[in-house]
Amino acid sequence: MKRRTLLASALVLTAGLFAAPAFAAFPEKPVTVICPWTAGGGTDVLLRALSKEAEKFLGQTINVVNQTGGAGAIGHNAIRTARPDGYTVGMITFELNSLPPQGLVPFTWKDFDPLMRINSDPAALTVKADAPYSTVRGFMDYAKAHPGEITIGNSAPGSVWHIAAGLAAEKTGVTVKHVPFDGAQPAVTALVGGHIKAVAVSVAEVRSQVQAKNLKILGVMSSERDKIFPDVPTFKEQGVDVQFYTWRGLALPKGVPAANKAKILDAYKKAFETKDFQEFAAKASLNLSYQDSAEFAKFLDQNFKDVSAVMKNLGLAKK
């Protein structure tokens, strides 16, 4: 009898503990945002800049926590398994769609509750400024005429830029050697130093070297031309129908109460629209492209199918 009362009171107590936040105005304590990439990197800086604005609208501190490793697998997993109370938000990135086809993680985007898309950056094929070709076609023709000579650098094996370069090569039917580096920056450096022939990374990552006339962009893999380099034609304009983007967005673990989700979304959306954040994005040459939860989910679904198909063709997916 005694034990039962104890148990009952314990149950009531625990229930009270869990129920309490629901009655009180969310959020009543600091919110944590998980970043699957290292502090100081592009994703981290973007997330911190956005979260700093969002704090004002949320009325609570937002702590960015970097849970890195396993090519993003650890951070994404931490978001998925976090307590679904709205106090843990996460940044999801392209790798969420490229890790599952490789058989490296036991989850897909469907195990998350997408919140909003923040940006999507297209790949740009970039070569040395003094290279003998200045169009995508010219580059591919050169590659055909000089087999075994073209090396394209990317940021890591199986990374977004590896897939982008693979896709472009596949569409044009040339064979190139893919050289993985430890991040996009070292690949760009190697290109400037003439150790490789091309890179297929984002415009932001080659911008300064292009402006300094060390490198030139042959084409961007997007539907529209780039805002910073409007002179550079897209792949499609040059007759190679390739579009490939990396993207970043926010997501929650599944099962967050709708009211809490709405509050988080509202704060981040307002933060996204602030002048300061827009200015920051322009300085960092990020291609902002907001999508709400529903659109983002639809986008993720399509992107997942596309990426899986490409990776299978490139032999990067698990057989």
Partner: peptide
């Protein structure tokens, strides 16, 4: 490098 970019500065020859 990230800190420079936030300031709107692109390190490099420019």
């Amino acid at each position: 490098l990230g800190a420079f970019v936030i300031q709107g500065l692109q390190p490099g020859p420019m």
